[in-house]
Amino acid sequence: MKISFTDKQYVSIASVVIMLVIWKILAMHFGSDFVLPPPEKTFFTTFKLFTDSHFLAIVGSTLIRSIIGFIFSGILGMGLGIIAGINPLFNAFLRPVLVTIRSTPVIALILLALIWFTPGSVPVFIAMLTMFPFICTNVTDGIRSVDRELVEMAQFYRAGRKRIIREVYIPAIIPFIISGTSSAIGFGWRAIITGEVLSQPEYGIGTLMQNAQTFLNVDAVIAWTIVAVIIGYMFEKVIRWSEHKLIAWRF
């Protein structure tokens, strides 16, 4: 059986290999598990993580917080985004708010959230707050980008309000929603784990990272990081896949 790769895949694989080699060299140079454990050790630890009885609860908790945060920010983002898309005054009002939220360092938001909320809800709140500006802005842009001429054509052919919304507005907005979702999830996933590191809920990837720090298990810190990166990557894949399904017409 021959397995062949395209050129592009070769280069990507080579890139990963080079990163691993550099890692190994640096680990050997430092010679200390506290500074940088070698890759083999870390991968072994990563596998051990999977066998931990609480692994599913830990990863699941972080995932559920992200999903809940995403749903809330999706609803809020779309609601406000639609209003801002239709009403320019409201858009002007909303803009500075969104810019402020987006520019505030996440850590500042977390520290404030710790004061206002219980530790269990801090990560969800953070997820929501960091994700919603992306969705909101993209929905607004999407609505404003709808081709006036297409709407005119549809009105001319007496397509009816509901049909116009369903078949002219929504398909035009979907690419923007997907783009917003992609940014939101990428950002929110990382923010939520940072939130967990500081608020320390009982189950969470961030919590376990912090624990590993306390117990001087540097390889576990990296291992959990790898878990987080893998999940982040999977989110990305899911979004790419749904993009292909929802906006097949673009490809």
């Binding site: 297409l150 054509m153 001319f156 052919y157 078949e167 398909p171 017409w249």
Partner: peptide, 12 residues
């Protein structure tokens, strides 16, 4: 109405 540009819905 036939417009100057076709005005087709790109997603259909």
């Amino acid at each position: 109405y036939i417009f100057q540009d076709p005005r087709l819905l790109p997603w259909k």
